[in-house]
């Protein structure tokens, strides 16, 4: 270990240091100290990510699609409920029209109360309908004069439909499952501009749809129901009635047959888009488990 360029560090000393043999004779103390410090025990903050790593380990198949998976679930639930609501609404509307729609406009509210008009529905998933149902029953005596387009769902439901059926992104408006009449209504509600539909709906529903507390209050949900617009499809009673008429289990049951008040011809895609992300983790976990078996 002469005083060369670097005293005390010949090739073998360097190599033993690199192997982690920090006690090798001939290695300069400074280097030993340095490398000892560099390989010191783990300090607690270095392991801060442990739980996150374990969480990823627990659900490796889900980890990549976590956000999208959550979104898919919400979307699918919405689709189920809203589709069921739509179907029932349409049926109720037809029934209403058949029974005594025109002569007895106040009968709308009576029908609503006959079905209870309760605010069950989406239990937080579709709280727009919930709040409107509750709010409107009390408001019904005030003679909402426009039950005419009773086959249309409320703006909230239209928005939920749009949300549920939209494949991804705003580009899907045109190809969504809404029939053209409903879509036109929605656009009209939004002020005549298709581009305004998204903001309108997000304003109406509140962006995070899940927690009911974050959603518009009954009052605000009722705002689009201003009597100024006669074309506004404001016949909430049959709708909330039908929503509440069916307990939610039936709504989820109706998922597989998937009632199609919406033109099915134009929308196989949204369905596929709904399911494919969730099928990916499934297949992945299948492969995972098979490779597990293979490994053993």
């Amino acid at each position: 270990m002469g005083r060369g360029a670097v005293p005390g560090l010949d090739a073998s000393a360097a190599e033993s240091l690199l192997r982690g043999d920090l006690g090798h004779a001939g290695a300069p103390d400074v280097l030993v100290h340095l490398l000892t410090a560099a390989t010191a025990p783990a300090r607690p903050h270095e392991l801060d990510g442990e739980e996150a790593a374990l969480a990823a380990f627990r659900a490796p198949a889900l980890a990549p699609g976590h956000p999208s998976r959550r979104r898919t679930l919400v979307t699918r639930l919405l689709t189920v409920k809203v589709t069921a609501a739509f179907a029932l609404t349409a049926a109720g509307g037809v029934a209403l029209a058949a029974v005594d729609a025109l002569p007895r406009i106040p009968g709308v509210s009576s029908l609503g109360s006959r079905f209870g008009g309760r605010a069950t529905s989406g239990a937080g998933l579709a709280p727009g309908a919930t709040t409107s149902g509750a709010g409107r029953q009390s408001a019904s005596p005030r003679s909402t004069p426009t039950p005419l387009p009773s086959t249309h769902p409320s703006p909230e439901n239209l928005c939920l439909l749009l949300l549920a059926d939209r494949p991804t992104g705003p580009a899907g408006i045109g190809s969504s499952g809404l029939d053209s009449q409903a879509l036109a209504t929605l656009i009209a509600l939004a002020g005549g501009d298709p581009a305004a539909v998204g903001p309108y709906c997000s304003r109406l529903l509140g962006v995070p749809v899940r927690p009911a507390s974050q959603l518009p209050s009954p009052a605000s949900a009722a705002t689009p129901a201003n009597p100024a617009s006669p074309t506004a499809p404001l016949s909430p009673q049959p709708r909330s009635a039908s929503l509440s008429a069916r307990p939610s289990p039936s709504a989820s049951k109706s998922h597989s047959p998937r009632p199609s008040p919406v033109p099915t011809s134009s929308q196989p895609d949204p369905n596929a888009a709904d399911r494919s992300p969730s099928s990916t983790p499934a297949t992945r976990s299948a492969t995972v488990s098979s490779s597990r078996g293979g490994h053993r």
């Binding site: 005083r3 670097v6 560090l9 300069p28």
Partner: peptide, 22 residues
């Protein structure tokens, strides 16, 4: 790696402690 170690030793001033203690 060897170059790196040498450079580190240089940079640290290599106090060159007595061999006995080492």
């Amino acid at each position: 790696a060897h170059r790196g170690l040498r450079r580190l030793a240089e940079r640290l001033g290599h106090p060159d402690r007595p061999a006995g203690r080492r």
